[in-house]
């Protein structure tokens, strides 16, 4: 974590082996992620700004109309949609929360052994029953 890690081996060859790359502390890693996020936003904005200067701007009423295959638009498109989408989102939430519990278990699985495995089988079985119930109730049927 210090500059000493980076010193070139003066014996001739550079032995900076992959796994011992310098800077592996948390602060460095998350600083990297934060700085990269800023870079990525700038990177995404730049072409839009450039295009603002380069692209022609000749708006007209017809161009600004919503595209509906050339016909005049009928009614608003911000309307209520089918409840089906909401039900799928609910079932998704169930499994997403389940995944939050499964990931830490998976990391520690080989240390925990059989008992934790049986516990996880019971946990998954309860949720699989939920999925089975939704399936039988025709909630997974798209119409």
């Amino acid at each position: 974590m210090t500059v000493a890690h980076l010193k070139i081996d003066l014996d001739g060859f550079l032995f900076i082996i992959a796994s011992s790359m310098p800077y592996t502390s948390y602060s460095y890693q998350y600083l990297f992620v934060a700085i990269f996020a800023v870079f990525a936003v700038i990177f995404a904005m730049t072409p839009l700004v450039l295009a603002w200067f380069l692209a022609p701007k000749k708006p007209s009423e017809t161009k600004k109309a919503p595209y509906e295959c050339g016909l005049a638009s009928q009614g608003d498109s911000w309307i209520q949609y089918h409840v089906q989408f909401y039900i799928f989102a609910l079932i998704f939430l169930l499994f997403d929360v389940e995944i939050v519990f499964i990931y830490p278990w998976a990391v520690a699985f080989q240390k925990l052994g059989l008992f934790a495995f049986v516990e996880m089988i019971i946990f998954i079985a309860i949720l699989a029953f939920g999925l089975f119930y939704a399936w039988r109730k025709q909630m997974l049927k798209w119409d």
Binding site: L50, A51, K57, Y67
Partner: peptide
């Protein structure tokens, strides 16, 4: 880059 940006 040189295409017009149309916003409804």
């Amino acid at each position: 880059f040189i295409k017009e940006d149309i916003v409804p």
